[in-house]
Computed example of a mutant assay.
Amino acid sequence: MVYAKEILDSKIEQAQRDVDRQKVNHILHFLLSIFTAGIWVFIWIIITIISKLEVRRLEENIQGYFQEKIKTANTDIYKVKTDSADKLIKLSGMLEKGLLTEEEFHTEKEKIIKS
């Protein structure tokens, strides 16, 4: 579980670095606009628009990735809970039929609960 959290944290950090890399250095563009007597403003606007679109695309990809991971994790947890419940029901049925002793039932039940 800790390993999965570390992977998730590293993915979040990488995604944040990708978004930060797309930010526009407005001070640099302002200075370039001054030095080029305003001609650079048109390029600055284009770069800003492209950067905003790229950041939006990255954020959508990040959001989709994490939603998929959460959905997968929830599905896996549900499967584990369902499998454990089914095993416990089968064990109790075997106990009621006399196929298992109380001691065997409790031993097997502990194994299922721990797994």
Rank of each mutant, 00 (worst) to 15 (best):
N61Q: 12
F35W: 10
T82C: 07
E54C: 10
S51N: 05
L88H: 12
M94G: 01
V41C: 13
G93N: 14
A73Q: 06
E60Q: 10
L58T: 00
S33A: 13
E6C: 03
I46W: 13
N74S: 10
R56M: 04
S115C: 06
T75I: 06
G98Q: 07
S92T: 13
S92C: 08
Q16M: 13
H106L: 15
R21P: 01
K23P: 03
G93P: 04
N74I: 05
L31M: 14
V2H: 12
R21M: 10
V80R: 04
I34N: 09
S33K: 14
G93D: 15
E60F: 11
N74A: 00
V41E: 13
K90W: 03
K111H: 08
G98L: 05
A73M: 02
N74G: 06
V2K: 08
I49N: 10
S51F: 09
N25F: 09
Q16E: 14
I12F: 13
T75S: 01
K69T: 00
I112Y: 01
F66Q: 08
I34M: 14
K71N: 03
F30V: 07
T48F: 04
D76A: 10
G93E: 15
L95S: 08
I62Y: 12
D18W: 03
V19S: 05
R21I: 01
I27A: 03
E59I: 02
L32A: 12
K71R: 02
K90E: 14
A85W: 04
L100R: 00
H29T: 11
V2Q: 09
K114A: 14
K81L: 01
D18E: 15
I70S: 07
Q16S: 07
M94Y: 11
I62H: 03
W44S: 12
F30E: 12
D83C: 09
E104S: 02
T36V: 07
T82R: 03
V24E: 04
A15P: 00
K52E: 06
L99Y: 03
L32H: 07
D86V: 15
